[in-house]
Write a protein that binds this DNA or RNA. Structure first.
Lengths: 344, 344
DNA sequence: CTGAAAGCGCTTACAG
DNA sequence: CTGAAAGCGCTTACAG
């Protein structure tokens, strides 16, 4: 009898045996042809392909995995509301395709923590994991890394099974500070990302850069958390501090910078005339024609490519020692930075 | 020998047989216990659970699917750069969990069209599909619907295997227009979403609402495409048209509204004092404290819940006729709308 | 409560 | 070039 799971008119899914029968060949041959393996004559090949097409045949991934003992699945752990993660994922597909791997997306949401997401990915037999963001502690990460090789994006981790692909964020912030100093700024503040990924690195970069320019006494950090709201709050703090006000602000990321920007403009404080703002990530937001935000750019495309390559090296080429890849950021100078005009 | 695919120190994945051996029971019993099926004594149950835990055992999804002939997978076709899609997906997890289904995410990107995404989802044995956005034509959709039941979000489709869950978008725009008229506006323009999902419906709602208020001669639609840039362009058009300028604009969505808002403010045109703006979606952007945008709200949580329930009804309860569920929108009134002050 | 057995849809040597 | 056979890790009656 039909189970309740079958829609009454939903046709049974075609199997390899069906294709073989229709093409008048053995199942083995169908398998060969469909995988593009050698061993079939051109005429037979065409016949098999036609039969598969006619039946709307699609190999069953579950069976393939089970039998071949390989899934060629790469799990991606990400946070649904982080725009950066999505942009990164977009860039993960082309290199994964190129190397014949599938991406399995494991979303973390407010109701679904990394534990559940990881469990699921492992259930799908992912052979490696790309970690975007989840702040696993050492023990959890080690346990995970005991099962599958891992590529961690942005965070610095030391473990033989964990590769890291990241941007030199301290350098990125330094580029921002250098640019501002060159424009003539001295009172440069930083709104940080609290304990979010890479925030410490960026904070450190800010301090170092300021010291390098002899601006040790100008160092001023306002705590934030990478959200627009935290940028807006920081802007309020700056607006209400009449004693000393910065002429430029380096934000922890673009979202924060956007909160700063909009709050200043709302308060009739002109950007960049009265205050310069630099963002971080060079996101779509920063590039909008009516925002035109100066921002530090990470090469997301290249990072994604390197992440996949790191996995391929482990899985296909047998590499076993960890790699730590650090890319250099660039500064996209746009319209939210300028020389300070109101020097008292 | 070890294949190249095995990291040298990566332990073999524990299998059910391993758990059975460690617990000193049969594989059948392990299967029962792990699935929570009745038939095992409490002591045995604990022993099995402990053994599984010790070994870090995780059932192999591929094998489960293959054998049980059910995957309990629901495929979700979405566009990575559409914020709405991600928000929707977040809300899909709780109801899916509740009914014991897994979500498999199929991302469409610039390099990966719906065809590839769908193929992959079907390869993972998805038993149903939630379609967010992909504009499949009738033939493609019918072919798909021949394989699995489908829930289409937002678009209006007639097919026995396709359910629709959507918001009455025409009504949403009507709420926006009513609100503006009540505030005293008459020159109300609309920046539409071109041929994007639901754009036609919203456009229609605008026309109808305007007519209802006897504002037939005020109807004015600027073409857009749901992007911030299209909103910004529309704002430029409005700013440069000195003959007649609207006192209020209903945008096709929040992103577009944001483009309008920012461009007006940049041009020193006060919102809402000089011009009112209404968005659509009530997205995170609209709710930001420094934006506070009046926007039409769709009940995404409820839509997601209904989408999953529609699938469960088909898969578990055997429903076969199509359902078309229409939710009513609400208007979230915030700070970008006010009475027109500069009435000439 | 337990164990032996069949089989899901594939892939992979292996012998013709 | 082709076919028979084994087996991936599970679930599911079935007989004890």
């Amino acid at each position: 009898v039909n189970g309740v799971n079958d829609g009454p008119t939903t046709p049974k899914r075609a199997t390899m045996a069906d294709v073989a029968q229709r093409a008048g060949v053995s199942r083995t041959l169908v398998s060969l042809v469909l995988r593009g393996a050698p061993g079939a004559g051109e005429a037979t090949r065409q016949r098999v392909l036609a039969a598969a097409e006619d039946l709307g045949y699609r190999p069953d991934a579950a069976a393939q995995m089970l039998r071949s003992n390989r899934s060629r699945n790469i799990g991606v752990l990400f946070t649904a509301r982080h725009v950066f993660d999505l942009e990164f994922i977009e860039n993960l597909y082309p290199p994964a395709d190129k190397h014949g791997y599938h991406l399995v997306l494991g979303a973390m949401t407010t109701t679904r923590d990394e534990y559940h997401a990881v469990r699921e990915l492992l259930g799908y037999r992912c052979e490696a994991l790309v970690l975007l963001g989840p702040d696993l502690d050492k023990t959890q990460l080690s346990k995970l890394a005991g099962h599958v090789p891992i590529v961690d994006i942005a965070r610095i981790v030391r473990h033989p099974h964990v590769d890291v692909v990241r941007t030199a964020d301290d350098r990125g912030v330094r580029l921002a500070v250098d640019h501002l100093v060159e424009l003539g700024h001295r009172e440069i503040w930083h709104v940080d990302g609290g304990n979010m990924p890479s925030a410490g690195e960026r904070r450190r970069g800010y301090r170092t850069a300021m010291r390098r320019h002899g601006l040790h006494d100008q160092i001023h950090i306002i705590e934030g958390d990478y959200t627009e709201e935290s940028g807006a709050r920081a802007a309020e703090v700056i607006l209400s501090s009449d004693t000393r006000r910065p002429t430029a602000v380096v934000a922890g990321n673009d979202r924060c910078a956007f909160g700063l920007l909009d709050t200043f403009r709302h308060a009739k404080v002109s950007v960049p005339e009265e205050i310069s703002i630099v963002g971080y990530d060079d996101s779509r937001l920063a590039r909008l024609s009516f925002i035109e935000m100066t921002s530090v750019r990470q090469d997301v495309e290249r990072m994604a490519e390197l992440a996949i390559e790191a996995i391929v090296e482990r899985l296909d080429d047998g590499r076993t020692e960890a790699r730590h890849i650090v890319l250099q950021p660039m500064l996209a100078v746009r319209s939210t930075t300028a020389s300070p005009t109101d020097v008292a």
